[in-house]
């Protein structure tokens, strides 16, 4: 049998399960969302084609601006925070601790990632309560005024950010930690011989060597932050008003609470395009700051 032919067969056979599922459950639905956004769909009766009217509604939807504003705000706030805090923690744990202390710190920072999001979000909602929550009690102890964590459009972002950093920092932390461990020690030794200060070592060696990891972490964080759902759902239900309502929440609400599947699809499509654009931008920019040398 021709080798090329048998290779082709083998190749496709191995990817068949994944490919089939991908086409049916990911690509198909993507096309489905596209089609739905151009129609008026009903689960129990007939549907019809409505062209661009869902998109006209999207642009004239007064809430859309606030909702996208919130989502993008979360992206621009949460992503840098996760990167910085994750990096700082990783560098500190890697550089300052050893042995069982290191194990303890790794566990402390990584465990929240595993914890059931729904559960801890419920608990944090209680902690953030303006009048009776744990956090405001501590704030009261040091004499400051209670903060309306979940009741003010400004503080809501802070509350979500705090929760997000506590729950998910483990992800970037662990990637950075491993990235740090894989930087060859010789590079540092050579630098120290040359008389480089800790700061110089950090900025000239650590950061560049970590940049591939950082790129990977940033891309994932952006995709995650853009579709953020669990955190606002449990902590704030999108409130007060619409101040913490993200696109993810709005899609759910529109499609699965008001049964407006078509409009929901139009919104979902817009989200996809935004994520696509931002990710492509990231890939284009990576040439500028990611260092792949040895």
């Amino acid at each position: 049998m021709n080798k090329k032919f048998s290779d082709a067969i083998a190749g496709y056979l191995f990817i068949l399960p994944v490919l089939l599922l991908f086409i049916v459950l990911t690509l198909g639905p993507l096309v489905g969302t596209l089609l739905l956004s151009f129609s008026k769909f009903s689960l129990l009766s007939s549907s019809r084609w409505v062209g661009l009217s869902n998109f006209f509604n999207l642009f004239s939807d007064a809430r859309m601006g606030v909702i996208y504003g919130n989502t993008l705000f979360f992206v621009f706030i949460l992503v840098p925070l996760h990167v910085i805090v994750g990096l700082v923690l990783a560098v500190s744990v890697e550089g300052l601790t050893k042995g069982s202390a290191k194990y303890l710190f790794r566990t402390t920072f990584f465990f929240p990632v595993l914890a059931t999001t729904a559960s801890v979000a419920i608990a944090w909602g209680m902690m953030f309560d303006t009048s009776f929550g744990l956090i405001n009690w501590f704030i009261g102890l040091i004499g400051a005024k209670a903060i309306p964590w979940l009741n003010s459009p400004v503080w809501v972002y802070v509350a979500v950010a705090i929760f997000s950093l506590w729950k998910f920092i483990g992800n970037s932390f662990i990637y950075f930690l491993v990235g740090l461990q894989s930087i060859p020690v010789e590079l540092y030794e050579a630098a120290m011989l040359d008389g480089a200060s800790p700061r110089q070592r950090f900025f000239r060696i650590t950061l560049p060597m970590l940049s591939p990891t950082m790129f990977f972490v940033v891309v994932n964080l952006i995709i995650g932050a853009a579709q953020i759902f669990d955190e606002p759902y449990f902590l704030t239900a999108g409130g007060p008003g619409d101040s913490s309502r993200t696109v993810g929440l709005y899609i759910y609400e529109t499609a699965f609470q008001y049964h407006n599947y078509s409009y929901g699809s139009a919104v979902a499509l817009s989200l996809f395009l935004v994520i696509l654009l931002v990710t492509l931008l990231q890939f284009k920019l990576q040439k500028k700051w990611v260092f792949y040398g040895n």
């Binding site: 990911t26 639905p29 993507l30 489905g32 739905l36 759902f229 899609i251 599947y261 994520i275």
Partner: peptide
């Protein structure tokens, strides 16, 4: 095919949820 599969990372939960649900 590999690139297409990888692009799946960008096709998030909410984008596919509605048609998946209907299916």
């Amino acid at each position: 095919l590999f690139l297409v599969l990888l692009s799946g990372l960008m096709i998030t939960n909410q984008v596919t949820a509605i048609p998946q649900f209907i299916l």
